[in-house]
Nucleic acid binder design. Structure first.
Lengths: 223, 223
DNA sequence: CCTACCGATCGGTAGG
DNA sequence: CCTACCGATCGGTAGG
C-alpha cells in the first residue's frame, strides 16, 4: 500500500507509451522487483475495480495501468476473478492489521469504551477513505462478483474484523450508552461508516477525526 | 411495484421456457399489454442488475427473463444504458411518492419530530427491502455505471428526496435529540439504512418496523 | 513477461 | 416484437 516515488520528469505509470522510448524501461540494479510487478497489478486492479466495477474493467485495462501487455496479468494470476479475490484479501489483511494495532495501543492506556470506539471508527475511516486505499471499498461493493468459495473464505476475515468491535459495543451497551441490540447496532454503525465511500471527498469533507467524532457523538447516548 | 398474482400452477416469469408449450403465450383479451411489456423488461432488468450488477447482466438475460427474443429490448429502450436509467428513475419516483405520502399522513396528526423520523425510516426500509423492490437498490449500487448526464438528472430527484428529511432532522437537532451537524447526520443515517440492503434477510431479520424502532432509538438522544 | 492468436459473447441493427 | 446477423471486445492460452 506504499506509494512508489516517481521522479518528476518521468511519465506516470498509467500513461500510455506515447512519449516513452518504446517498451518498458528495463530494470536497473536499484530497481529490483520480486513481488513488485504482482503488486503493481493488484494496485491497478483495485483502483480500476473501484472506479468502474469488476465486470466493466478489462484485464487489458489492468495490464495497461501496470504497464504490461494484455496477456501478462495471467502470468501472475490464474484468472480475472483470482485477481479480484487477491485485491479483497489484501484489503482485509490491511484492515485487520490496522484495527488490531489500534486496539493494542488503546488497551493498556485504559481508555474508556467510548474512546476505544472512536479509535476503531477512525481506523475504519482510514482504511476506507485514505489515499490509495481502494482495496477495502472493492470488497464492500463487489461481493456479488465473487464465487461462493471465495465468499466463504473472505467471510472468515470479515467476521474476525467484526468480532474486534463486539467487546467495545457490549461494554457501551452495558453502560447504557448504546441503544438497540448490539448485533444490530454493529450493522447500523458499520453501515453508516461504509456509506461514506459514496460521499466522502478529501477536498471538501471534514477530516477523518472530525467525522469520527461526529459519528460517535450521534451513535452514543450521553454518559 | 405491485406484485403480479401468479397462479400456483404456472411457471414463474423468470423460468426458462422448458415446460412451456414453445414460444410465448399469446395475449388473450383479458391480458392487454400497453406499457406492459416495457414494464416487464424494467422489472426483469431491476432484478438482474441488482443480482449480478449492470455490466455483468446481458441484454439477452433481460430479454429471456421477460420472455422475449434477444433483440427485442431495443424496441423498447434505445440502449442497455437507457434501460438502467429507466430502472433508477422508476425507483426514485416510487421512493418520492411513498415518502411524500408518509409526510402528508403524519403532518396533520401533529406527530412529534421523532415519530416523523420513524415514519420516514419505515418508508425508506420498505422501498429498499420490500419484496420485489429492486429498483432503488440498483440506484444505490450502480451509480458509477451512469453517464454524466444521467447522473445529473437523477441527482435532482435524489436531492428532492433528501430535502424531505431535512425539516425533521433540523427539528430534532433543535430539540437536542440529534448530535452532529444536520447534513452529516443525514448522510450517516441514510448510510446506516442503505447498508441494510447488504444484510437484510426477510426470513431472518426483524420486521421493518422493529428495525426502524431500533435505528431511531440509536440515532436519537433521550428527550 | 511478450507475441500472436482463438473462441465466445455481447450490444446493437436491418428489415420485416 | 422476431429473425438473422455484424463488428468489436474480451478472457484466456501456447509457445517462446
Amino acid at each position: 500500500m506504499h506509494e512508489e516515488t516517481i521522479a518528476p520528469n518521468l511519465p506516470s505509470v498509467a500513461e500510455p507509451s506515447a512519449k516513452r522510448p518504446r517498451g518498458r524501461p528495463r530494470k536497473t540494479d536499484d530497481e529490483r522487483d520480486d513481488g513488485n510487478r504482482r503488486h503493481a497489478l493488484l494496485s491497478a486492479a483495485a483502483q480500476l475495480f473501484r472506479q468502474k466495477g469488476f465486470a466493466a474493467t478489462t484485464t487489458r485495462d489492468i495490464a495497461a495501468a501496470a504497464d504490461m501487455q494484455s496477456g501478462s496479468p495471467f502470468y501472475h494470476f490464474k484468472s480475472k476473478n483470482a485477481l479480484l479475490y487477491a485485491v479483497m484479501e489484501e484489503g482485509m489483511h490491511t484492515a485487520l492489521a490496522r484495527q488490531k494495532q489500534v486496539m493494542h495501543a488503546s488497551d493498556p492506556q485504559g481508555l474508556h469504551a467510548a474512546e476505544q470506539l472512536r479509535a476503531l471508527v477512525v481506523a475504519h475511516f482510514e482504511v476506507l477513505l485514505g489515499p490509495g486505499n481502494d482495496f477495502v471499498p472493492v470488497m464492500l461493493y463487489e461481493w456479488r462478483s465473487l464465487q461462493p468459495r471465495q465468499r466463504k473464505s473472505l467471510a472468515l476475515l470479515i467476521s474476525e474484523y467484526e468480532s474486534l468491535w463486539m467487546p467495545v459495543l457490549l461494554m457501551l451497551h452495558a453502560q447504557g450508552r448504546l441503544r438497540a441490540p448490539v448485533g444490530l447496532a454493529r450493522l447500523l454503525i458499520l453501515g453508516a461508516l461504509n456509506w461514506s465511500v459514496q460521499w466522502f471527498d478529501p477536498k471538501k469533507s471534514a477530516s477523518l477525526q472530525d467525522l469520527a467524532d461526529a459519528a460517535v457523538a450521534m451513535f452514543l447516548k450521553e454518559s
